[in-house]
Every structure is written in structure tokens, then in C-alpha cells.
Design a protein around this nucleic acid. Structure first.
Length: 216
DNA sequence: AGCACGATTAACT
DNA sequence: GTTAATCGTGCTC
């Protein structure tokens, strides 16, 4: 006799084709952030795939980075960042928003990549339901919007993206014509001192979306 | 127990 | 350009 499969028991290739392994995340955070661009982030929820191309990411690198949550030392909130690479650090902010990071570098070194933008690929009806009223390429163009679209909240904090039955992971598949990468200062660091405030650790894919219909 | 603030967003002038 | 929403978190008393 077999019991009915639990929501996380299905590790089938159909739901979870070739994914980025832990060795991908266990590297310098700037490299990981840049190389995540154009890859596909996938969320498996109740046997359904929600996904999008990663088009924007920021690096937060170590306790010495005064913009990184880890700069205050190890706390219950940020402890996942000190752990193994390839795990999800999901935090709550402004009393209402969740944001998703992917932990990088080696065990014991607090660093992560904040995912700030996706181009939706799979599960668009669900995303439109959650974020109605905007064009599809604007559904997930912010760190908290991305989490809304993929149904990501604190329950996924600490999830292993490299586990066989992961609910969240990054596929090896990448955009064929991703376009140029734009580098700039990280966003929202209003009270962070220099030089951290201006470090060019924000990476974006431009021209990643299909050309818009010409107006007029 | 109380407080100030935030890796944001939508709505507004 | 500005502001309010809204509450977990980490700090101080």
C-alpha cells in the first residue's frame, strides 16, 4: 500500500528539470548575481509551476557590507545567510512585503543575492490574479512583487534550492538572447554609509523583454 | 514594554 | 518629486 504523495514528494523531472547545483551558489556573490541573470526561477506549488526569467539581482556580501542585513551580526532573522549556499533567505519588510535572496559563498560567510525582477514565463493567470491590472512584463518587476507572483513568503525561509523535492529552485535553462547587462548602485539604501551605498552591485538585463508594440 | 526603522509599493502632487 | 501603509525585528530601558 502507498499513501498519497505529500505536496513535496514529487521530484519528477517534468516538474524539476536540470537545476543549478550548490557549487553554482558556493562562489563569489558578484559572480553568482551576474550569472543568475537570464536563468529561470521556478516555484512549484501544489504540483504547478510558476516561473520567470531573472532580469534583476543585487549582491549583499558579508558582515563588512553595511548594506547587508548581516552587518548587525547573526540574528534569528538573518541566520540563514550564515548557512549553506543554495538556500532561500526570505525576509519581511515595511510591515507588508516579502523579499527573496539566494544564499551564496561558503558555510559561515553571510552573503546572498537579492532577486529584484522577473519576466513571467509560467503561471501567468495566477500572477495576474495576484497582481492584476498591469502589463505582463510589469507583474514581477520588483523584489516584493516577484514574491507575490510566485507565492513566496516566510514559510520558504531556509528552503534548500538544491534539494531533490525543492519548492523553489533555479533552472540551468537560460535566455538565448538576453541582451546587455547594466550595472549600477543598489536600490533603497537610504541610510547606508559610503562606500557601500554606491557599490555597483546591482545587475540588470536590459532589452530582455520582447519588443513592445509600436504606438502610432 | 516601548521605540525607531526598514534591501518596498502604490498613489499622489 | 512626496507620502502613507503596516508590523517584524533588534535595540534600549
Amino acid at each position: 500500500m502507498t499513501s498519497p504523495p505529500s505536496p513535496r514528494a514529487d521530484a519528477s523531472p517534468r516538474l524539476r528539470p536540470s537545476r543549478l547545483p550548490r557549487t553554482f551558489f558556493a562562489r563569489p556573490t558578484l559572480d553568482v548575481a551576474r550569472e543568475l541573470l537570464g536563468r529561470r526561477l521556478v516555484r512549484v506549488e501544489r504540483g504547478r509551476r510558476l516561473s520567470g526569467w531573472i532580469v534583476e539581482a543585487e549582491a549583499y556580501v558579508g558582515q563588512e557590507d553595511l548594506a547587508c542585513h548581516a552587518h548587525v551580526g547573526r540574528t534569528p532573522r538573518n541566520q540563514v545567510m550564515w548557512g549553506l549556499p543554495g538556500h532561500a533567505y526570505v525576509y519581511f519588510t515595511y510591515g507588508m512585503h516579502w523579499c527573496l535572496n539566494l544564499v551564496t559563498e561558503q558555510d559561515g560567510r553571510p552573503a546572498a543575492v537579492l532577486l529584484r525582477g522577473l519576466l513571467p514565463v509560467e503561471g501567468l493567470p495566477a500572477m495576474r490574479r495576484r497582481r492584476g491590472g498591469v502589463p505582463d512584463d510589469r507583474l514581477a518587476d520588483g523584489p516584493a512583487k516577484l514574491c507575490q507572483c510566485l507565492s513566496i513568503d516566510g514559510r520558504l525561509n531556509g528552503d534548500d534550492l538544491c534539494a531533490p523535492d525543492a519548492r523553489l529552485f533555479v533552472e540551468r535553462a537560460h535566455l538565448r538572447r538576453p541582451g546587455p547587462v547594466t550595472v549600477g548602485a543598489r536600490v533603497g539604501l537610504n541610510s547606508v554609509p559610503e562606500p557601500w551605498k554606491s557599490k555597483p552591485w546591482r545587475f540588470r538585463l536590459t532589452q530582455a523583454s520582447p519588443p513592445r508594440k509600436r504606438i502610432g
